[in-house]
Computed example of a mutant assay.
Amino acid sequence: MQKLVLFFSFLLISTGALAQRDTSAFTKFNDFNNLVLNGGVKKPEAQKQFETLLKRINILEMIRAERIIPKTQWVFPLKGYKSSAIGGTHGNGYFDKGYRYLDGNKHGAHPAHDIFINDRNQDCIDDHTQKAVDVIAVDDGWVIACTNQWEPNSNMRGGKFIWIYHPATHIFTYYAHNNQIFVKPGGYVTQGQKIAEVGRTGYNAYKKRSPTHLHFSAFKLVDGIPVPYNPYEQLKKAKTL
């Protein structure tokens, strides 16, 4: 009996360690996301690939030695800022009609809230603190896709972006237009952890007419695919760090 207990203890520890080391599922998801953005995969096949990759990530999460416990409250995604920095009136800048994740870079909707920083001269530095503004994870989760590369002549809307999957709630969050990213696919982030700095990357965000802001979205799974929902109330209740 003692040997059996030791065996299962060893199995639990070893599989947990393996789950924390195995980043191939996240690398594959990142590659898949890039294909979607570039229109390099047909939608029926893309949906199958998405479901397969997410199942693998969920399996890795199940065998982790440490469980992610759902938080009752988000933290606001910009350090030192609160919901009053959200553009529009009462969050009316959010518009998700016509958005589909599998459309990639080609969509006309705005399923997000733009959160503006104090940056009149558009140098990506806060006018009050004279420092870059930290983008932070609203909750614990896995970085499943991101890019730290973007050129001004690119037509990619998100610029330098990050996707985080929150397995405890099965929610995805998306952070775009960053100046610099400090995470990579397969990284596990905790609530409030710095993941990037606010920037002006992205097709529209780079233009002078656009004030410096973070583009923040949240998604739920519907029929196996991320579908945007309006997170305004969660952002209003979020804790400021």
Score class of each variant (00 low, 15 high):
152 P>F: 05
162 I>M: 05
238 A>G: 11
50 F>D: 01
190 T>C: 05
131 K>V: 02
241 L>T: 11
131 K>M: 12
35 L>M: 14
220 K>A: 12
119 D>R: 06
6 L>N: 14
167 P>F: 10
205 A>R: 02
192 G>Q: 05
158 G>K: 03
72 T>H: 11
185 P>A: 03
44 P>E: 13
190 T>L: 10
79 K>D: 05
219 F>M: 09
46 A>Y: 12
171 I>L: 10
224 G>Y: 11
132 A>L: 11
21 R>Q: 14
84 S>Q: 11
144 I>W: 07
116 F>W: 06
42 K>H: 08
14 S>M: 10
52 T>Q: 14
61 E>V: 05
72 T>L: 08
106 K>V: 11
73 Q>K: 15
200 R>N: 11
150 W>K: 06
103 D>K: 14
93 G>D: 02
36 V>L: 06
55 K>I: 01
223 D>E: 14
78 L>V: 04
197 E>Q: 12
191 Q>C: 04
195 I>G: 00
7 F>G: 00
37 L>G: 12
7 F>T: 09
176 A>D: 10
140 D>N: 15
42 K>A: 12
125 I>G: 01
95 F>E: 08
60 L>S: 07
48 K>S: 12
20 Q>R: 15
5 V>Y: 14
3 K>I: 09
226 P>Y: 09
53 L>H: 07
86 I>L: 06
35 L>T: 06
115 I>N: 05
193 Q>A: 12
112 A>D: 01
227 V>E: 11
170 H>C: 01
115 I>K: 03
136 I>M: 06
21 R>T: 11
184 K>Q: 15
105 N>R: 13
192 G>Y: 03
169 T>H: 06
80 G>Q: 05
120 R>C: 02
205 A>L: 03
139 D>K: 12
94 Y>A: 03
128 H>I: 14
20 Q>D: 14
81 Y>N: 00
9 S>M: 08
42 K>S: 09
134 D>E: 14
20 Q>Y: 09
43 K>V: 13
6 L>E: 15
125 I>M: 12
81 Y>L: 05
128 H>W: 06
206 Y>A: 06
218 A>L: 03
146 C>T: 15
101 Y>M: 07
57 I>C: 05
235 L>C: 10
